[in-house]
């Protein structure tokens, strides 16, 4: 029990880094995913092939290999990034590839008549997407986003292998220093679980409300 008290500051700092990694790379992944998903829908010719390659490469190779590749190979070609930045970058690109497909298919699922109506109201495409199509597509995307958020939280453990002192790496270091693998690894396991449970609950709620149907807000007037 004394040991637990002694190591808890390190574990908490690790947990904080894990949360930070999840938030930063999650936000970036959303930005990447929306940008790529929308760009693919726009069918710009010079972009479509590079983007398709990006998506296929990141979806068909192991995320751990991607992390190592960026960590070991980028410096060889003169790009030196901090480990934390590298970790965020790879996670954002990896999850961004998946999210772009979610964005794309959600937008494609919106009824053709909605597009027709925006044309009949003489809206330019950008306005149509911003005000009409995307607001309806977001509820369709949310359940998938929730699942990816949980997967991302778990995936941050991989960057422990490139020396980022998040939760898993902190634990591995503590085990090296103090021994007691049972106590330390179980603590970490439980901390991950505690971090994940809000997301699990959120996902359950999203699934209940899903089906992609737009539910009206309660009218205010």
């Amino acid at each position: 029990m004394n040991l637990l008290l002694e190591i808890s500051p390190v574990l908490l700092r690790g947990a904080y880094t894990t949360v930070l990694l999840t938030l930063v790379s999650g936000t970036c992944a959303l930005l990447v995913g929306f940008a790529v998903g929308l760009a693919r829908l726009a069918r710009t010719r010079w972009l479509s092939i590079p983007l398709a390659i990006y998506i296929e490469v990141f979806r068909n190779t192991s995320s751990l290999v991607q992390i190592f590749y960026f960590f070991f190979v980028l410096p060889l070609i003169g790009i030196r990034l901090e480990a934390f930045t590298t970790g965020c970058l790879v996670l954002a690109l990896n999850f961004g590839a998946y999210i772009s497909e979610v964005v794309r298919s959600a937008i494609l699922s919106i009824d053709r008549g909605q597009h027709d109506a925006t044309i009949a109201l003489n809206m330019p495409t950008s306005l149509s997407y911003r005000r009409i199509i995307i607001p309806q597509a977001i509820p369709v995307m949310l359940p998938a986003f929730g699942n990816y958020a949980l997967e991302l939280l778990k995936a941050t453990s991989l960057v422990s292998l490139i020396t980022i002192t998040e939760l898993t790496f902190s634990g591995a270091q503590l085990v090296q220093y103090y021994g007691h693998p049972t106590l330390i690894y179980m603590s970490i396991f439980v901390i991950y679980l505690l971090l994940a449970l809000p997301l699990v609950a959120l996902n359950k709620a999203l699934e209940r409300h899903s089906g992609g149907q737009w539910k009206p807000k309660v009218p205010t007037t």
Binding site: L150, S160, G171, A172, P181, M186, Y192, A196
Partner: peptide
């Protein structure tokens, strides 16, 4: 489902 595979492997392998 909500904990990382990496930690699960550590538990199985080291603990």
């Amino acid at each position: 489902r909500s904990t990382p595979l990496l930690i699960q492997l550590y538990l199985l392998f080291y603990v």
